[in-house]
C-alpha cells in the first residue's frame, strides 16, 4: 500500500520525521501543539481585551 509521505516538521525544538515517528511521539507532538495553540489563544484574547 502506498501511503502519502509527509517528511519532517520542527516542533518544540525537535525535528520529527512524520513518516517514521512512533505513534507515542506523534500523539505527544499533537499534545504539544494543542498547548501552543491554547497559549496563542490566551495571548490573543489578552491583546483583544485591551480594545
Amino acid at each position: 500500500m502506498n501511503s502519502e509521505k509527509l517528511g519532517e516538521v520542527f516542533v518544540d525544538g525537535r525535528i520529527i520525521n512524520l513518516d517514521n515517528a512512533s505513534m507515542e511521539m506523534l500523539e505527544s507532538t499533537l499534545g504539544v501543539l494543542s498547548k501552543q495553540k491554547e497559549s496563542s489563544i490566551v495571548k490573543i484574547n489578552k491583546i483583544l481585551s485591551e480594545i
Binding site: S3, E4, L6, V9, V11, L18, D19, A21, M23, L26, E27, T29, L30, L33, S34, Q36, K37, S40
Partner: peptide, 15 residues
Amino acid sequence: TEALTLQVQFAIFNK
C-alpha cells in the same frame, strides 16, 4: 501551529 497540527493529525491517520 495550526498548519503543523493538521500535518501531525494526518501523520497519525497514516500511521
